[in-house]
Amino acid sequence: MNLQEVKNQFPEAVGEIETLERLGFASGALEIKETLPKLQLLAQTDKTIVAGWWSVGEEAEDSVTLMTGGEPPLRKPYNLPTN
């Protein structure tokens, strides 16, 4: 998933560009083995949640799992409270 696809799917989070960039990276880095160290770091440290999705770290963890031949868990999206 590239950044534009993330923006289209999660328009309520467009103001959080840095979060969306990290989420897009975590989602889209599957084919690039050199990204594994960065994905592992995001998986351990990035707890930022995108409404209607899960945390950037969880997405990165899923990417690491897929890259290493595993099967990531089925996740339920977080719904952040609205003001």
Rank of each mutant, 00 (worst) to 15 (best):
1 M>D: 13
1 M>L: 13
2 N>C: 08
2 N>P: 07
2 N>Y: 03
2 N>K: 10
3 L>T: 07
3 L>W: 04
4 Q>C: 05
4 Q>N: 13
5 E>T: 14
5 E>Q: 15
5 E>R: 11
6 V>W: 02
6 V>C: 10
6 V>R: 01
7 K>S: 08
7 K>Q: 14
8 N>A: 15
9 Q>L: 14
10 F>L: 13
10 F>C: 02
12 E>Y: 04
13 A>Y: 00
13 A>G: 04
13 A>T: 02
14 V>W: 01
14 V>E: 12
14 V>R: 14
15 G>W: 00
15 G>I: 00
15 G>N: 04
16 E>Q: 10
16 E>S: 08
16 E>A: 07
17 I>E: 15
18 E>Q: 10
18 E>M: 06
19 T>H: 04
19 T>Y: 02
20 L>Q: 00
21 E>M: 10
21 E>Q: 13
21 E>G: 04
21 E>H: 01
21 E>D: 06
21 E>L: 07
22 R>L: 02
22 R>Y: 00
24 G>R: 00
28 G>C: 03
28 G>I: 05
29 A>P: 04
29 A>Y: 01
29 A>N: 05
30 L>K: 09
30 L>S: 07
30 L>R: 07
30 L>I: 14
31 E>I: 03
32 I>M: 11
32 I>Q: 12
33 K>A: 15
33 K>C: 05
34 E>F: 00
35 T>D: 12
36 L>H: 02
37 P>Q: 05
37 P>S: 06
38 K>V: 12
38 K>T: 12
38 K>Q: 13
39 L>F: 03
39 L>E: 05
40 Q>I: 04
41 L>I: 05
41 L>Y: 09
42 L>E: 09
42 L>G: 07
43 A>T: 03
43 A>H: 02
45 T>Y: 05
47 K>A: 15
47 K>N: 15
49 I>K: 07
49 I>R: 07
49 I>S: 04
50 V>D: 01
50 V>F: 01
51 A>C: 11
52 G>A: 06
53 W>K: 04
53 W>G: 00
54 W>S: 09
54 W>L: 09
54 W>H: 12
56 V>I: 14
57 G>E: 03
58 E>M: 11
59 E>M: 13
59 E>A: 15
59 E>D: 09
60 A>D: 06
60 A>L: 07
60 A>W: 03
62 D>A: 15
64 V>R: 06
64 V>Q: 09
64 V>D: 10
66 L>F: 14
66 L>G: 11
66 L>D: 11
67 M>L: 08
67 M>C: 11
67 M>R: 03
68 T>I: 14
68 T>C: 14
68 T>F: 13
68 T>A: 15
69 G>Y: 12
69 G>Q: 08
69 G>H: 11
69 G>A: 14
70 G>I: 09
70 G>V: 10
70 G>R: 05
71 E>T: 15
71 E>F: 12
72 P>G: 10
72 P>Q: 07
72 P>F: 10
73 P>S: 09
74 L>V: 15
74 L>H: 11
74 L>P: 02
76 K>Y: 05
76 K>Q: 10
76 K>V: 14
76 K>M: 10
76 K>T: 12
77 P>N: 01
77 P>Q: 01
77 P>I: 00
78 Y>E: 10
79 N>K: 12
79 N>H: 11
80 L>P: 00
80 L>M: 04
80 L>Y: 00
80 L>W: 00
81 P>K: 02
82 T>R: 13
82 T>H: 06
82 T>V: 08
83 N>T: 08
